[in-house]
């Protein structure tokens, strides 16, 4: 079993782990670092449960293997404690009942945060399109879509006031 040292920055902290090159990023985070908020739903890049922020943009952590992450910067759901957009999304997700079993929620939030920041003018159709790569089996998506729209609208009104 060939293991090599993988250096990466996770939630702001530089770290070095020993891992096989074949270990995917999600297992690296979940196993080596006990960051179990990143979930595995399909391990082939479709369901979105494992979505993390990798070098500043959402990525599937299940299909990115450890070797390729050497030198990368990763932010997981555990790494947004100080983030105002994530705080607003969390509040909106609760208010809109946008989660049930909670399994898709971390990946959903990371995707939603990217949508809110990247597409400030997104309407419902665009939000649905952008969220389509994150599957939820519980909610029927209504709460999720409304929560994202709620935060988009909050930010638009705040911007208008400013």
């Amino acid at each position: 079993m060939n293991r090599s040292a993988i250096s990466l920055t996770v939630n702001g902290a530089a770290t070095t782990l020993e891992a096989e090159p074949r270990t995917h990023l999600a297992d690296l985070l979940r196993g080596g670092m006990l960051l179990t908020g990143t979930h595995l739903g399909c391990e082939h890049g479709v369901c979105g449960a494992c979505t993390v922020e990798l070098d500043g943009a959402p990525a599937r952590s299940c299909i990115t293997h450890a070797g390729a992450c050497d030198g990368a910067s990763v932010r997981t759901i555990e790494g947004f404690a100080e983030d105002a957009v994530m705080a607003a999304l969390r509040a909106a997700f609760t208010a809109e009942h946008a989660l049930q079993c909670g399994y898709c929620t971390p990946g959903m939030l990371i995707t939603a945060r990217d949508v809110v920041l990247r597409l400030p003018e997104a309407d419902e159709a665009r939000v649905r399109e952008e969220m389509a790569g994150n599957l939820c089996r519980c909610t029927g998506y209504r709460g999720i879509v409304r929560a994202v729209l709620r935060v988009l609208e909050q930010r638009r009104s705040a911007a208008a006031v400013a």
Binding site: G45, G48, P58, R60, T64, T111, G133, N134
Partner: peptide, 9 residues
């Protein structure tokens, strides 16, 4: 193409 998270890579 696919989803944004895939397009990013």
């Amino acid at each position: 193409i696919a989803y944004r998270a895939v397009r990013n890579r």
